[in-house]
């Protein structure tokens, strides 16, 4: 029997927690924020030729775990995460060594333009595939993101879906206190995107409904996924510091325990 997305999510969460624990590294909250978005794409939505670009490259742990479990990159590479000589740094690699990671990211505001170029190429090559760009709150601060949004709408890039992992936190505080994005759905709509909101972006049914709403869009699409940073680990949830902090042994055990207890 095919495992449920929730079961897969649990496996990926355990994998990414283990990766960060072994590396004694941060970016855990950011990875847990978009994990369901990535699992939904890699196990439910994407065809083999489809492309995902993680503009919020700091959530690389979630990307690596999901790509690995879905067979898009060798699992053995995970063993080298964060180590000298690895292909897998804290942010996705630029080397092109892993085909499922077309672009190295980590500086915000690049992903949507890269996705636009990837999609726009179809006009000249005749190939057909869908490209998904996963953006963060911080990505939506960057001017280049909105340059790309203008381009996507002008050229009616119908094979492009932006997913905004909107957890309400960015660099050193809440988005609403730093640089307000609301009304964020209206902004994307005004820029010419077909927009659907997943009120619980950490819930697979909510994500599926949002994608389904956009199924017949004739131009670029945007799913606003209202997520929780550190989702699934009680002490990390909606806590800015879990962008940065590594776990200690007790915290790691608790995070694993909660992940297994709440599949």
């Amino acid at each position: 029997m095919r495992p449920t997305l929730q079961t897969i999510r649990q496996q990926c969460a355990e994998q990414l927690l283990a990766l960060y624990q072994k590396a004694h590294a941060g970016h855990i909250g950011s990875s847990l924020s978009c994990l369901e978005i990535l699992v939904d794409l890699c196990f439910e939505r994407m065809a083999a030729s489809d492309v995902v670009i993680l503009s919020k490259g700091h959530a690389a742990g979630a990307l690596y775990a999901t790509l690995s479990l879905s067979g898009r990159m060798p699992e053995a590479a995970l063993d080298t995460f964060y180590q000298d000589g690895t292909l897998l740094a804290a942010h996705p690699p630029c080397s092109g060594a892993i085909k499922a990671i077309p672009f190295g990211t980590g500086s915000l505001g690049h992903g949507l333009s890269l996705a636009c170029g990837t999609v726009f190429s179809q006009k000249f090559t005749g190939e057909k595939f869908h490209t998904y760009a996963i953006l963060s709150d911080g990505d939506c601060n960057e001017g280049s993101t909105w340059e790309a949004a203008l381009f996507a709408a002008h050229h009616q890039l119908a094979h492009l879906t932006v997913i905004v992992d909107l957890n309400g936190l960015q660099g050193i505080g809440y988005t609403k206190d730093i640089l307000k994005l609301d009304p964020i759905a209206d902004k994307w709509r005004a820029f010419g995107f077909a927009v659907a909101v997943a009120d619980d972006g950490n819930d697979f049914a909510s994500l599926a409904r949002a994608h389904a709403e956009l199924a017949h869009a004739t131009g670029p699409r945007c799913v606003i996924a209202r997520t929780v940073k550190g989702h699934g680990v009680s002490y990390m949830q909606d806590k800015m510091e879990w962008h940065y902090l590594p776990m200690n042994a007790v915290q790691y055990d608790q995070a694993c325990g909660e992940t297994r207890a709440n599949p």
Binding site: S113, L114, A115, G117, E127, S144, L150, F151
Partner: peptide, 24 residues
């Protein structure tokens, strides 16, 4: 194949990277 990207050089260059990755 002549595309005016508008006054948006940042997007233009990353867009070009996306095109190049697809063999253009």
């Amino acid at each position: 194949r002549f595309v005016n990207c508008g006054v948006s050089e940042q997007n233009m260059v990353s867009l070009a990277a996306g095109l190049a990755r697809q063999g253009l």
